[in-house]
């Protein structure tokens, strides 16, 4: 009923769905969430608009988050995971993106025996940046750096050793914190390299690049599994699961995160 009202209101205002901004479409989807089929239409259209912005070069963590959420609510899990991963390529420690990706990963439909889930489920390594945003840490570093320089200058003016010592401590602390943030971000960005996402359910992982090869693992890969891409040959991709298992999948079944 609410969905019908939303649609009616859209039509009465004389504007088509295509002419709306993606944020408006997303909010209309939220308003129509009592009717999943209708809401998904709005979210799917919002995802198309966000995707167009991304392709135009407007690549920010915020846009990646909105795009991923729109895909997720439109029912396209693989595209949602890809959008989260794309955003994390730019800002590996973004907390919103990591929260969303964690939820999207929990929606991947692994077989009930959990063997494949253990092998293929990607997980985040616990990081300091999960608790504190890197921007906050960088701001603290900047403040410590400025205070250290002020203390040093004042110590130089007044020849007070205590100020020299304070300046040394502040600058050392700022340097250590900067190194820590940089190292954590570097590590997280290394993890985000070369990923692909399975876009078709029941995708077999095979021992070679062809359907005649035997299966590497008994269970087929469900939609949404993330893979590391190692090589490509004849329309087949050599991929690695989270636990290090290597096999081949049909390239048409994998969405690459460029």
């Amino acid at each position: 009923m609410i969905g019908l009202l939303v649609l009616t209101s859209t039509l009465l205002h004389g504007s088509t769905i295509e002419s709306r901004s993606p944020d408006e479409l997303y909010k209309m989807g939220l308003a129509a969430s009592q009717d999943a089929a209708l809401a998904r239409l709005f979210f799917a259209q919002a995802a198309i608009e966000y995707e167009a912005r991304w392709e135009r070069g407007e690549r920010t963590p915020g846009l990646a988050r909105n795009l991923a959420q729109a895909h997720l609510l439109a029912g396209d899990l693989a595209a949602a995971i890809r959008a989260y991963r794309r955003g994390l390529c730019f800002t590996p420690a973004d907390r919103d993106l990591r929260t969303g990706l964690k939820d999207a990963r929990s929606r991947v439909d692994y077989p009930a025996n959990r063997t494949l889930a253990t092998m293929a489920q990607s997980r985040f390594r616990p990081s300091l940046l999960d608790r504190v945003q890197p921007d906050i840490l960088r701001t603290v570093v900047a403040v410590l750096y400025a205070l250290g320089l002020v203390a040093g200058a004042r110590g130089w003016m007044t020849r007070r050793r205590s100020l020299w010592f304070l300046a040394f401590m502040l600058l050392s602390l700022a340097g250590l914190m900067l190194m820590l943030v940089t190292w954590e971000e570097q590590w997280l960005s290394e993890v985000a390299k070369l990923p692909g996402v399975v876009v078709r359910s029941e995708t077999p992982l095979q021992r070679g690049n062809g359907i005649d090869y035997p299966a590497r693992i008994p269970d087929a890969l469900p939609l949404g599994v993330e893979l590391h891409l190692l090589a490509e040959r004849g329309g087949w991709l050599q991929v690695q699961l989270a636990d290090g298992t290597i096999g081949w999948v049909d390239a048409r079944n994998v969405l690459r995160i460029e």
Binding site: D23, Y26, K27, L30, S33, Q34, D35, A36, A39, R40, P61, G62, L63, R65, N66, Q69, L72, L73, D96, T99, G100, D103
Partner: peptide, 12 residues
């Protein structure tokens, strides 16, 4: 109804 997670109710 579509189940919308709490974090997805907000846009960046």
């Amino acid at each position: 109804p579509l189940v919308v997670p709490a974090y997805a109710r907000q846009l960046a």
